[in-house]
Write a protein that binds this DNA or RNA. Structure first.
Lengths: 223, 223
DNA sequence: ACAATAAATGAATGACGTTCATTTATAGAC
DNA sequence: GTCTATAAATGAACGTCATTCATTTATTGT
């Protein structure tokens, strides 16, 4: 009579019988996994503490024995999400290429977790070892190419700002820039918009690649 | 017995006597002004519909006769905030300089309204004439310098992404990048951080200027 | 005077995140 | 083996929000 299937979509977990540490079922890992499941299946608006508890087969208040707040859960999710960022190129391929891979994967990952951006952008990074290791990899990449130490952090932050902004932009509706009825008053912009559309490429992707090229050229010199 | 001073911090407004349009007191302009007042005095977390109503000397539900949602109020605030962006340089000073002024003012404005960024970044721009006029000014600036039409929109979007990302970054605590106890495991990054700090300049500002320079160089060529 | 109507009200609702007193059941001490 | 400290789960409750709605109020055009 343990762990009934529940015939329900929620993660099945051996019914917790309270007690000392032992076989913890409601630890940081399980909570994070459940949160990621909800997010990927139903999106961030569905990630409530009640939904999370339900997914874990537990009452909402039980979560507060293991996480001090929803903010903390979001930090755990962020820490996991960072594993999708590719920092392996530094020291392996030319810096420009390594930065490009890094930036693309970073943007793609956060485009799928856009609601984390305002959280992450303002959160002390000391709590996220993965993020710190990423910074170290990028810093090594720049340092090895002879960058002056005092320029390294600003360069990383500038790239990151562009990446976060681009990730937000990637979640915008395709027609977000449509001028609607005002088109006639904006001849140049409206024309440019049509010209861009005629290329058939996604505006967010094109903008990201153009901006990334420009940043890399500006930082490293022409290719 | 009209408009008692209230001896209270709230905006004094001639007590509304219901009826036909006439001398509307609770219109878009007044609501926007009140919202801006709350935000500048007590920040975005304090901007609740209840606080807004209180500021206007009215009950919360009354707001819904004039705004369909809080989202709409935020759009009004955004539209007003956009007036702080300086697009006057285009056609008046060299393009690089015009873009620089524009980008700086744009970032500064949204650094003070960071919570609007996730809203704005995803909102159809058709509802914001001021934003559209800004786009037109920038597009004219690029077009006049011979930019191909299909590159204009991506360039604007790329710059805007960098600007929004930088505005978010500008609201972060100064020590956000502090590696804490992990410093020893991150020699290059920790060193770079110290070198940056030693310059005495704000990391967010330095990163913004470095990134902006890089973007402009990448887009327009070396100065 | 009257009818139509814009506008304000206050009570109510439904999400949320979070707290707390209480209960449950295990692990280690004796 | 019992006892006891304690990690962990529970359900009820709270406070804060945005939002809705039936009702009232007061003005305008006829």
């Amino acid at each position: 009579m343990s762990a009934p299937p529940m015939a329900d979509g929620r993660t099945i977990v051996p019914r917790r019988r309270a007690g000392r540490p032992s076989n913890a079922v409601l630890d940081r890992t399980h909570i994070t996994t459940a949160a990621l499941g909800i997010v990927s299946e139903r999106g961030y608006p569905a990630l409530t503490m009640a939904a999370l508890a339900r997914q874990l087969g537990v009452s909402p208040s039980a979560l507060y024995n293991h996480a001090s707040s929803k903010q903390e859960v979001l930090q755990w999710v962020q820490e996991h999400v960072m594993s999708g960022v590719d920092s392996t190129g530094f020291g392996q391929v030319p810096l420009r290429e390594a930065l490009r891979r890094w930036a693309r994967s970073y943007r793609d990952v956060f485009a799928e977790h856009a609601p984390l951006i305002p959280v992450v952008a303002v959160l002390p990074v000391a709590g996220s070892p993965r993020t710190l290791r990423m910074y170290e990899a990028v810093a090594e990449g720049l340092s090895t190419e002879g960058w002056h130490p005092e320029r390294i952090v600003p360069a990383i932050v500038a790239l990151e700002s562009f990446i976060f902004g681009s990730a937000l932009d990637a979640t915008a509706p395709l027609d977000i820039l449509d001028p609607g009825q005002h088109a006639s008053a904006l001849p140049v912009f409206a024309g440019a918009l049509q010209a861009q559309r005629a290329t058939g490429a996604g505006p967010a992707d094109t903008a990201f690649e153009l901006g990334l090229d420009a940043l890399l050229t500006g930082m490293l010199g022409p290719a």
